[in-house]
């Protein structure tokens, strides 16, 4: 290979690499400016008629489902994530006029691991049938709050869950 050809190819490859990264960065910045990252509360209706509520800036969490005791958190692969992400799960009793947190658990995960997290809600967090009529904090209905970094997802867990 001629040195001049090799130099041209090197410049082309290097230029493409820089251009590609610049284009990706520009796209991300534009997405943030024009509001493609959603804000505010959102309601997502699931097939089992439970609702998943989200609030706060939403550049990260795409989906959070709680089916029985399995909570599945899906994170948008295209959105930026901090290097380390703290996943917080809190279960709140809401059968009384006041909310009371009856369980909380925190996981510290790397950005890779949190892309798709499936975790089992500890049984202590789920009201059992024999405690269903108890007074708070063991009511039938509660909600599960999942926090990934600064982003919150609240999944309602209704009767029998």
């Amino acid at each position: 290979m001629q040195p001049r050809t090799a130099l041209t190819l090197a410049l082309v490859a290097g230029g493409l690499a820089v251009g590609l990264v610049a284009a990706d960065l520009a796209w991300t910045l534009t997405a943030q400016v024009d509001g493609r990252t959603e804000t505010g509360w959102q309601t997502v209706t699931r097939s089992d008629d439970r609702s998943v509520y989200e609030h706060g800036p939403r550049p990260v969490v795409e989906e959070c489902l709680v089916v029985d005791r399995d909570a599945r958190l899906v994170v948008d692969n295209d959105k930026p994530l901090p290097d380390t992400v703290e996943v917080f799960v809190g279960f709140y009793n809401q059968t009384s006029d006041r909310q009371e947190r009856i369980l909380e658990a925190t996981w510290s995960l790397s950005a890779f691991e949190v892309r798709e997290v499936v975790f089992r809600v500890p049984s202590a967090a789920i009201p059992s049938d024999d405690r269903a009529d108890d007074q708070p904090p063991y009511g039938k209905t509660g909600h599960l709050e999942v926090r990934v970094g600064d982003h919150y997802v609240t999944a309602c867990v209704e009767e029998g869950s």
């Binding site: 130099l7 190819l9 090197a10 690499a17 590609l20 960065l25 950005a111």
Partner: peptide, 28 residues
Amino acid sequence: EFIPEVSEWTQLAALILLALAYAFIGVW
């Protein structure tokens, strides 16, 4: 360390192109 900024596929493509660029500079 640059993971949150650009997508993984962009990073992968950029790294492959950089490797090629280095190799061609070596040839030159």
